[in-house]
């Protein structure tokens, strides 16, 4: 299509500028071939427009749901928050919180313990600074005190044993005395029986 100054199809498709279109229109008036070509294009267009636009069978509308969020981050968060992963996240968060709380609490409590152990560690260091003589004196003193305590306890034990022996002797004497008394009582009872038996014989003799 070299006849018109510009492509007739571009003119038909409304892609030319106003001056260009004016030149084509002027050409069509004088060129029978181009006019017939252009008429055919217009007939084709008219035929195409017999297919009219249809109404959409169902209107499209969106509800205010976070899952349709334009922001990918917010949409991801909405999906995540509405999914089973939320439970896992909540569990992990609670576990983390518990661990943090426990670690902080333990740290607070362990501080005084550490202090105490530091204090306890001081005396040995001080003891190390004493002379051997002083240490020996302390040992001797401690041994003397221990011996004295042991002797006292031994004396007490000896005294206790002596007391027990004395009480035992007293108990034996008491027992012998009781046994003697019992023997005397039996003998006396026997004599009484014998005396009571001799009285009738005297009467028969009369």
């Amino acid at each position: 299509m070299k006849c018109p100054p510009f492509d007739l199809r571009d003119y038909f498709l409304k892609e030319l500028t106003t001056p260009q279109s004016a030149q084509v229109e002027e050409h069509i008036q004088s060129c029978l071939e181009c006019r017939e070509e252009f008429d055919q294009l217009r007939l084709t267009e008219a035929a195409l427009f017999t297919l009219r636009e249809e109404e959409i069978p169902q209107r499209i509308a969106f509800v205010s749901d976070k899952i349709f969020e334009p922001s990918p981050v917010r949409r991801w968060f909405s999906n995540f928050w509405g999914s089973a992963g939320r439970l896992g996240f909540a569990s992990a968060a609670m576990l983390s919180a518990a661990l943090i709380f426990f670690s902080l609490n333990t740290a607070n409590k362990s501080a005084p313990v550490a202090k105490k152990s530091e204090e306890a560690a001081v005396p040995p260091i001080a003891a190390a600074s004493l002379t051997e003589k002083q240490i020996q004196e302390r040992i001797d003193t401690a041994v003397a005190i221990a011996l004295e305590k042991a002797l006292t306890q031994s004396k007490d034990a000896t005294r206790l044993i002596a007391d027990l022996r004395h009480e035992n002797e007293l108990a034996n004497a008491q027992l012998i005395r009781v046994a003697g008394d019992l023997e005397d009582a039996r003998r006396h009872e026997k004599n009484q029986k014998l005396l009571s038996a001799k009285v009738p014989e005297v009467g028969d003799a009369k």
């Binding site: 297919l51 249809e54 959409i56 499209i60 509308a61 969106f62 509800v63 334009p70 922001s71």
Partner: peptide, 27 residues
């Protein structure tokens, strides 16, 4: 407005374009 999450604005925008898009896809 719709880009900021305003669904009502987007619905209005959809109502302006849905018929054209539907017919394009129908063709």
């Amino acid at each position: 407005q719709a880009a900021r999450g305003n669904v009502e604005s987007y619905n209005l925008l959809v109502s302006r374009w849905e018929k054209r898009v539907y017919n394009y896809l129908l063709r």
